[in-house]
Design a protein around this nucleic acid. Structure first.
Lengths: 215, 215
DNA sequence: TAGATTGTTAATCGATTAACAATC
DNA sequence: TAGATTGTTAATCGATTAACAATC
């Protein structure tokens, strides 16, 4: 079954989407092996899910398998990569070249999913003109012009929370459509801009509450 | 309404828990102002939720308000801090003092939620004995002994994915009960150890898929 | 008092899980 | 063929939202 929105795009529940991003690296590993097909049961067992969930998640993508055999691994890998957009480069600007910004810039896990941080920005004049992991650090003054010139769609905020809203405003004004926000503040943003908040304190709290429950 | 588990502990849905961690910093800010009470409507409006959701989330914690007025701010802040465990220190070991590890160690947002990274560990001999943000970097050889001695319950894995499982094994063996895992791999862990996975590539994918849907 | 807001029970919605026919 | 596995429809479960009585 395929649920589509008005424009014909398949709508995948976010939890399914997240799981699909977890299946993919595992399948890539498998694809270097000898077996040709993989079943939902195998995937589920390897990653700690249940087979029906894996089957349903894959069904959302429109990818089909063969009864009795499972899914052809290399085809599954290719189609999943396309479906998740890991093959299309996402030109991105990062603002805030502190510790967290640097960690994001140097994070090896992004090489496979198409994130291209083409420049970083920082308020500190001492950092401007330097490079981190080959990424040049520029002044915010150039932000808007460069967004247009380089066709940047995504912005990452790894700046202190005090400046996050101001940075978001500049991003929106520059025409950026998606913001990945690591600052623990609610950004005021027009409806047509997508914000993905990454809140580390919140994740930690979930973990520690779960701990309380079992201890 | 309060849902409790067998041991009498209140069970809060994870989404509610995450929202509560977002209300709290906002309320802390408010508490330095002049108003004494805050209503669910005010919180909701400020943070982009709906009032009934805020009310329900707060109800889960057992904190009560006053009809017509709302919730007494300072009391709400205090009780939420206790409820979320932000006032109790969580002695934690971090393994993998690379870029991400350093970002976590230096992350200012943790000061309010009780995370105490008491030591870091790394495989690189050159790093051992040095300090980052006042946190000493030690050899893995000392891990187990120190877990016992310092009463450490939480472990953070910010090491490359290749070594994540091995580190997890050591953590489990040392008696750690909760693992915050930043490596994009499924950890094989006994049932009584809680794992919280932080998958950056997955979050990025959710954002970029949402972007595709509106553009 | 009137009315705003809480707290709680009920309704809705969406994701997960189960059941099972279709298929190779 | 028998049996494993997919794909799909239905049932269940849990979170969100609505409705409303209680309260100050």
């Amino acid at each position: 079954m395929q649920i589509k929105d008005k424009s014909g795009l398949t709508i995948v529940p976010v939890p399914s989407l997240r799981r699909l991003t977890i299946y993919l690296p595992y399948l890539k590993e498998l694809s270097s092996g000898v077996t040709e097909y993989v079943s939902a049961t195998t995937i589920a067992r390897a990653l700690g899910y249940i087979p029906i969930q894996v089957r349903k998640d894959i069904a959302y993508t429109g990818i089909t398998g063969k009864p009795r055999r499972g899914y052809p691994i290399s085809e599954l890998v290719n189609q999943l990569e396309v479906f998740l957009g890991w093959k299309s480069y996402k030109n991105t600007f990062l603002v805030g070249a502190g510790n967290l910004g640097r960690a994001i810039m140097g994070y090896p896990g992004f090489k496979d999913c198409g994130l291209q941080i083409v420049a970083a920005f920082d308020a500190d004049p001492a950092k401007i003109g330097t490079r981190l992991f080959g990424i040049e650090i520029l002044s915010m003054d150039e932000f808007k012009t460069l967004v247009k010139r380089m066709g940047v769609q995504l912005g990452i905020i790894t700046a202190p929370e005090q400046s996050a809203q101001e940075i978001a405003d500049i991003m929106v004004d520059a025409g950026i459509h998606g913001i990945w926000n690591f600052a623990p503040v609610k950004l005021n943003i027009p409806d047509d801009v997508i914000v993905q908040n990454e809140n580390l304190a919140s994740s930690l709290t979930v973990l520690s509450k779960k701990l309380d429950q079992i201890v």
